Amino acid sequence: MSMIGMMMGVAAAIAAPDAALLDLRQPGNVVTALQAAGYKAEMKINKDGEPYVLSATNGESFSVEFYGCDGLKDCKSFQLTSWYKKEPLYTPALTNEWNARNRFLKIAVDSDGDLREFLDATAVGGMTQAQFTDLVEWYSAMDGQLAQFLSTKRDAAGAKPAK
């Protein structure tokens, strides 16, 4: 194969529609990408006038929050996140145990004692639909692992989940 033929093959692969990059700096595109990945997605505006997307996985809601935005668009990053209501189980020791064993999905306890799980991603440079779907499916899988981790800890403590 000639050098020109090889270069044309590479250019065709780059230009393939399934490899198109999504502009995830635009919150509306994140809604579309979530829906294309098979998730429900609804754009919302918080009390500070900032965009976020409401979705769900594993029977529980999660949101996609945006950071470094220029108004309601051109966001630099986004975060998949969900909250668990306060339980005595939620301590720094629990979060340290989870975070030491899990690199990307992190947890933290806020000043009210509520537990938050979160995964940050850059919106700069874009992702293919396949990459975005993989990210959300990975978040979903880790959300399920976190639920199991918390269930095991509750069982060991003889505690019940918060309602």
Rank of each mutant, 00 (worst) to 15 (best):
Glu87Phe: 05
Glu87Asp: 11
Glu87Gln: 13
Pro88Met: 07
Leu89Lys: 10
Leu89Trp: 09
Tyr90Glu: 05
Tyr90Asp: 11
Thr91Gly: 05
Thr91Ala: 09
Pro92Met: 12
Pro92Thr: 05
Ala93Lys: 07
Ala93Gly: 08
Leu94Asp: 04
Thr95Met: 06
Thr95Gly: 02
Asn96His: 06
Trp98Thr: 00
Trp98Gln: 02
Asn99Cys: 00
Asn99Ala: 03
Asn99Pro: 01
Ala100Gln: 08
Arg101Leu: 04
Arg101Asn: 15
Arg101Ile: 03
Arg101Tyr: 02
Asn102Ala: 00
Asn102Thr: 03
Arg103Trp: 07
Phe104Thr: 13
Phe104Ala: 14
Leu105Met: 12
Lys106Trp: 01
Lys106Glu: 00
Ile107His: 02
Ile107Thr: 01
Ala108His: 01
Val109Cys: 05
Val109Ile: 11
Val109Gly: 04
Val109Glu: 03
Asp110Gly: 03
Ser111Met: 04
Asp112Ser: 15
Asp112Met: 08
Asp112Cys: 09
Gly113Ala: 06
Gly113Glu: 06
Asp114Asn: 15
Leu115Asp: 03
Leu115Tyr: 01
Arg116Ala: 05
Arg116Glu: 07
Arg116Met: 05
Arg116Thr: 04
Arg116Ser: 05
Phe118Gln: 07
Phe118Cys: 07
Phe118Arg: 08
Leu119Ile: 10
Leu119Met: 15
Leu119Asn: 12
Asp120Cys: 06
Ala121Gly: 08
Ala121His: 10
Ala121Asn: 11
Thr122Gly: 12
Thr122Asn: 08
Thr122Ser: 14
Thr122Pro: 09
Ala123Tyr: 05
Ala123Trp: 03
Ala123Cys: 10
Val124Lys: 08
Gly125Ala: 06
Gly126Ile: 07
Thr128Glu: 09
Gln129Leu: 15
Gln131Cys: 11
Gln131Arg: 13
Gln131Ile: 11
Gln131Ser: 14
Phe132Gln: 08
Phe132Lys: 08
Phe132Pro: 12
Asp134Val: 06
Leu135Trp: 10
Leu135Tyr: 11
Val136Gly: 15
Val136Ala: 13
Glu137Gly: 15
Glu137Ser: 08
Glu137Ile: 09
Glu137Arg: 13
Glu137Phe: 11
Tyr139Asp: 09
Tyr139His: 11
Tyr139Trp: 14
Ser140Met: 07
Ala141Gln: 03
Ala141Asn: 04
Ala141Glu: 07
Met142Tyr: 13
Met142Gly: 12
Gly144Glu: 04
